[in-house]
Design a protein around this nucleic acid. Sequence first.
DNA 1: CGGTATGATGTTAACGCTAACAAATGCCTC
DNA 2: GAGGCATTTGTTAGCGTTAACATCATACCG
Lengths: 346, 346
Amino acid sequence: MPANSPVSPPPRTLTLRDVSEASGVSEMTVSRVLRNRGDVSETTRVKVLEAAKELGYVPNKIAGALASQRVNLIAVMVPSLSNMVFPEVLTGISEVLDGTPLQPVFGVTNYQPEREEKVLYEMLSWRPSGVIIAGLEHSDASRAMLKASGIPIVEIMDVDGEPVDSVVGISHRRAGREMAQAIVEAGYERIGFLGTKMPLDHRARKRFEGFTDALAKAGLEVADQEFYSGGSALAKGREMTEAILSRTPDLDFLYYSNDMIGAGGLLYCLDKGIDVPGQIGLAGFNGVELLKGLPRRLATMDACRAEIGRAAAQIIATRVAKPDTAPGEKIVLSPQIQFGDTLRRH
Amino acid sequence: MPANSPVSPPPRTLTLRDVSEASGVSEMTVSRVLRNRGDVSETTRVKVLEAAKELGYVPNKIAGALASQRVNLIAVMVPSLSNMVFPEVLTGISEVLDGTPLQPVFGVTNYQPEREEKVLYEMLSWRPSGVIIAGLEHSDASRAMLKASGIPIVEIMDVDGEPVDSVVGISHRRAGREMAQAIVEAGYERIGFLGTKMPLDHRARKRFEGFTDALAKAGLEVADQEFYSGGSALAKGREMTEAILSRTPDLDFLYYSNDMIGAGGLLYCLDKGIDVPGQIGLAGFNGVELLKGLPRRLATMDACRAEIGRAAAQIIATRVAKPDTAPGEKIVLSPQIQFGDTLRRH
DNA sequence: CGGTATGATGTTAACGCTAACAAATGCCTC
DNA sequence: GAGGCATTTGTTAGCGTTAACATCATACCG
């Protein structure tokens, strides 16, 4: 048996050269066939395709990208995946990008600016064709990287601030304001706020600010508040509601910074036989699907998640296809209050 | 003003050469500094680092990967992100990979084999160092690609089948069997099944098979069943429960293929004043966090999601660090029934 | 039937970086 | 102060692909 038996070829990964040799044409022609680029005769096209399939050749995009200076990757950065809200954004993005040669790549920042910076650096070092990134608050270094990258950037979810380039989202300040107005108009006066402790969730913070501003205009202020971090949001919603109500029993409205804790609160109130929305009104934020299955529909406000994803992807797709499209687009969506069964109508 | 004013330099992206010129050393030395590789004097190190920062240089990993034949990317393929279960797996993976130079890249297949094939092809064309992929069922082409890639593969979530290489998961058949046994032992006899219509959710299918097998051994069979697809799982759980109970009112147990529809069923039963678990017992599957906030704890079985993610990442990390580690590792986790408040104890 | 479009294929030189080796520098020892 | 060793820096040659151009058939025209 020869030393280097042909029976077990070295598992060296295949290159264009292998396909080229197997099909008897130049590497360039193989490359053309595989990319559907330029004129190739039907005969050779079939020959090459067969050889490639036979060998199980998978093109090396690394080499391709380096040579062509084109990378059809879109970096998508979100703070979290366990939130129910971001997966929907990603779905919206994928929907639009599926109709283009672009491919999304996801990165998760855990609401930490340093982590965002690191993940962004990693992603940019692959020279993507665009970036979709949640939020307007970034470290100086991150912002500098984004600006210097020279590629289309879309910041999403939030529009209250100074974008690097384009932006698609809703005004969380306004969302908080409008909810406060609806609550005031419905006649509630002793209002409690329950939210996340996370100081880095800027959107929750802005909703809270808008909320207190609008209350102030009506001569009211938040009567009590309660914060949490970590754990099952539904269970936390229960616990926090119990805590705030036992501390301040005369509250007549509870505004939750997200639907999950709101749902927990709702279940708690129902358990305790509290009259909702008579004795106490409740509202959350996000408009998550889950609410549809609860015994009562929690009042909420849709965050337009899928729509934001689609619009952001559309901006990127257009900018990549037509590089001379003007940057700096701004799309502001306007979520409507859904009164549900837990907030009296005006 | 000269035609080509130096004031606004062309936005050509920076290369090692730019840093090398700015710092007065060779490109190679810059490369060494930036990768912390090889000995470089403290003086030049600082000089280079400053120049790089000053310019805002971001290395081009594409070129780096091509030159070094090393790509520190791990392809992670899951069927869905909106499921709550996969984000937890991804978290487990990230946790372990964060301690290594490896970086996960996520792909979503939507439970479609053709899509899985396409996404896998895309991912492999970036020549990742490993693949973590959900499930054991793949198209022939996908399987061939995985085998031919020559990199470590870990199939996760499920162990009932023939893996390509390594596998980490639980036996869904056994999970179904054990739940059936617990139900039988608790004395329930008229058992209904509620699940997803999706024929491509192999794990749900296997749980169902194990479930009916074990019932058969006890001389029982599923008295009625109900399937759904799409929509809010919680609301669907309600609807399905109502449907199955109105069709077959004498059922004394409902087994749900996941916790979300199970939770919907639980809420429905509580609404209707049905005695749980006296009149009807309920059980789901997955052990999702959400259950902790419900009025009663639904019986369930943990799918060991984070643990699976960690173990899979660990296998990959080890194989990448020590390429001569034996392939074909198999880790079978054993989830325990959590009886909660909806399944009578034996 | 020469001349010229036209289509199909091949050749060459990057792309930006790193492995491997080569050279230069400094430092110590006897 | 020459030899030798360790440390630091530089040089060269790809990595696998594609852009741009060159070449070669073939067909078509008057």
